[in-house]
Simulated scan of single mutants.
Amino acid sequence: MPRLTSIGRGSVKARMTLLYGGLFTVVTSAVLIVVQQLQLRILTQRVGDIPFPDGSTLSVADGRADLQQTLTSSQRIITLIAIGAVAILAFTVCWWLTGRILRPLHRITDTARRLSLSNLHERIALNGPQDELKELADTFDAMLDRLADAIASQRRFVANASHELRTPLAIQRTAIEVGLADPSPAKLARIRSELLRNTQRSERLIEGLLALAQGERGPDERTPVDLTAAVEQVLEDHRPIAERAGVTITAATHQSTVAGDEVMLTRLIANLVHNAIRHNYPGGHVLIELSPHAMLVVCNTGPQVPEDRIGELFEPFRRLHPDRTGSADGAGLGLSIVAAIARAHGGGVRTTANPDGGLSVTVALPALTAVPPLPASPR
């Protein structure tokens, strides 16, 4: 009954059994029938060549015909029995062999059915030769690894976002409860300043979360964007910040145009330049290069960055020193927004640590048009 049920469901095992068992039976039956016909032809020819003794022509002819008919009937019966036996053996062997071949698929299916958010650590870990089924199981395990990492990152994001949003609210509540218990003009001014600072921090955090969400979603409409003009605008806006921090900015840009959202791409450039200035030291420098093929490179001096921790910088709320600082200057979303905007525009981000400290961040975007490079203009 289980076999009939699986055949009725149209399972792969049943279809493979019917296909290969049927083909084997048909081929074997055809060979047996051809062999039988050849044997009958040879038998008819040999019986016809038997000499007749004198005076017994009729009786010998009748005996020869009876012998030929008996042998023909026997061969047909034997052939039919052989075909039936071959069919039974073929379907039985194909059913067993197909079951063994598809056993890893059942293991993959069972693992997939058991998986949930609470046991994503389970893996198929299929052993055996490196064949297609082993490759499928390894691919499934790799997908589970990526899924587990994504869920872990999402949980960290929720926890960190809750922490970042709760901290300024707690500070504001404490300032109100303590400051207003015995108000005085000086205390009220201090409370006002503290509340304003934490409100601004919350606004920056919410703005960063909205920018990250928009970057993940991608632009609603793509239009030609002049990256050169965007870089120049960002540099003009950040030069006063760099001067106050004692950081020198040098730029070499070439004309480059991409298809995308101008506001999002400007935000990408601004985040890179702002991070390069903020994570620097007095007397340091920032180098910005834009190639005609829409490749933007931002290189800055600064503290040493371990190579094995570069990937953490692109996770939301992750900072190098330390993971969460509660700094009012930022929430650790800058590079996360950069990566999201680059992916949404069909590009990518590559980051390397400089030998003398600092980072080199390269953003590669698909260029809309490429023109001969103009002479570099240092700024």
Score class of each variant (00 low, 15 high):
residue 169 L to T: 07
residue 170 A to H: 06
residue 170 A to Q: 13
residue 170 A to N: 10
residue 170 A to P: 01
residue 170 A to G: 09
residue 170 A to L: 14
residue 170 A to F: 06
residue 171 I to T: 04
residue 171 I to Q: 03
residue 171 I to H: 01
residue 172 Q to L: 11
residue 173 R to H: 07
residue 173 R to E: 12
residue 173 R to I: 11
residue 173 R to T: 03
residue 173 R to S: 08
residue 174 T to I: 12
residue 174 T to A: 14
residue 174 T to C: 09
residue 174 T to P: 01
residue 175 A to S: 09
residue 175 A to C: 07
residue 175 A to L: 12
residue 177 E to M: 13
residue 178 V to M: 07
residue 178 V to T: 15
residue 179 G to C: 03
residue 179 G to K: 00
residue 179 G to E: 04
residue 180 L to G: 03
residue 180 L to A: 11
residue 180 L to M: 13
residue 180 L to F: 13
residue 181 A to T: 05
residue 181 A to F: 09
residue 181 A to Q: 11
residue 181 A to R: 10
residue 183 P to M: 07
residue 183 P to V: 08
residue 184 S to H: 06
residue 184 S to C: 10
residue 185 P to F: 03
residue 185 P to L: 09
residue 185 P to Q: 07
residue 187 K to M: 14
residue 187 K to V: 14
residue 187 K to Q: 14
residue 187 K to E: 11
residue 187 K to W: 10
residue 187 K to P: 02
residue 188 L to W: 03
residue 188 L to R: 06
residue 188 L to V: 12
residue 189 A to C: 06
residue 191 I to W: 00
residue 191 I to Y: 00
residue 192 R to Y: 03
residue 192 R to N: 14
residue 193 S to A: 15
residue 193 S to K: 09
residue 193 S to F: 05
residue 193 S to I: 11
residue 194 E to V: 10
residue 194 E to Y: 01
residue 194 E to Q: 09
residue 194 E to W: 02
residue 194 E to R: 04
residue 195 L to Q: 00
residue 195 L to H: 00
residue 195 L to S: 00
residue 195 L to E: 01
residue 196 L to F: 03
residue 196 L to E: 14
residue 197 R to L: 15
residue 198 N to F: 01
residue 198 N to R: 11
residue 198 N to S: 08
residue 198 N to H: 10
residue 199 T to P: 02
residue 199 T to E: 10
residue 200 Q to E: 15
residue 200 Q to G: 08
residue 200 Q to M: 13
